[in-house]
């Protein structure tokens, strides 16, 4: 376990370093000049001399690799530069927005798990029943519906027609319901299918048949034996789908004007604030690889056999 953990941490570090270089290169290649953008944001047309002084002060005259090192050292110190369009340090801005995006994502994950566990278990236990067929259709719809369309439709139905939610408020629990459902919905189908399959595998296994034969309460078997054993496949699936969730926040936040990282990034593009955009990309990447790291470690804790199997293969 320890050896695995060290190797995995080293790999995480290398990937993060590579990702930071890629992020910096992409923004470095941007056609517009950050110094000029800074003056433009203040509605000043700079003289050539002023521009050069600013470039010097911002470190833009240094070679690429030096600029990258400066940026990377800044990240390590928690300094991500200054956003001229927002008139505040990028790190402060990012913190505020991250909280909103996390709120939304966690709520969406809660909806996702609750809904798909219920649907997955029902369709597995009542295999080939009408309910199972209905849930299968629902899954296919869920996977295929564009989230941006779903969001707009829900807005039309629940805000415009039924007046259940307000369109503008971004405070409080009720404001979060529609965005979170929109974010969760496209993934519900995949999770339901996965859970259905995992539960079916368990139901047909010997220990469950044995427990049923011994007269153990069926609900007890389901909640204390079958569901805990599906945990591994759900955890793995979470690692595989977290990218869709993180990317989805940009679209969902945009539809509902949710003041999170996604809307910030799109504003940054509109105003050509590449310092801010850069910070968004690297933060999302770190969150993503971070979550996948945790998922990998968790799967090893849930099922240590995976590691043993790996060792066996190596020793052969």
């Amino acid at each position: 376990m320890k050896k695995y953990l060290y190797a995995r941490i080293f790999q995480l570090f290398v990937v993060m370093l590579g990702a930071s270089l890629l992020t910096f290169s992409v923004t470095y290649l941007a056609p517009s000049d950050p110094a000029e953008m800074m003056f433009m944001s203040k509605d000043v047309i700079p003289t050539a001399e002023a521009l050069n002084t600013a470039r010097e002060a911002m470190g833009l005259n240094k070679p690429f690799i030096m600029q990258y090192m400066d940026w990377l050292l800044g990240i390590c110190k928690g300094d991500l530069g200054y956003s001229y369009t927002m008139q505040m340090p990028v790190a402060d801005m990012l913190g505020m927005r991250l909280v909103k995006t996390l709120e939304l994502s966690l709520f969406a994950i809660a909806i996702l798990f609750a809904l798909s566990i219920v649907l997955g278990v029902i369709s597995a236990v009542k295999k080939n029943s009408f309910a199972d067929i209905l849930i299968n259709v629902f899954s296919a719809v869920s996977i295929s519906i564009p989230s941006f369309w779903l969001g707009l439709i829900m807005m039309f139905v629940f805000v415009v027609k039924l007046h259940i939610f307000k369109i503008t408020s971004s405070e409080g629990f009720s404001a979060m319901v529609l965005p979170a459902v929109t974010l969760a919905f496209p993934l519900v189908g995949r999770y339901t299918k996965q859970i259905r399959g995992a539960v079916l595998d368990e139901i047909n296994s010997n220990y469950v048949v044995g427990a049923v034969a011994r007269g153990v309460n069926r609900k007890r078997i389901l909640f204390f034996h079958i569901l805990p054993n599906t945990l591994l496949s759900i955890t793995t699936l979470f690692g595989m789908t977290v990218a869709a969730l993180l990317g989805g926040t940009a679209i969902v936040e945009n539809i509902f004007s949710w003041p999170g990282l996604g809307t910030m990034a799109l504003d940054a593009i509109t105003y050509r604030d590449y310092t801010l955009l850069q910070a968004y990309v690297i933060l999302m990447c770190f969150i993503y690889v971070g979550i996948n790291f945790i998922v990998d470690v968790l799967t090893h804790i849930i099922d240590p056999r995976i590691e043993m199997f790996g060792k066996e293969v190596q020793s052969e």
Partner: peptide
């Protein structure tokens, strides 16, 4: 490294 980013981001 490219796969370390959520693709849409």
């Amino acid at each position: 490294i490219i796969l370390a980013f959520p693709d849409i981001v």
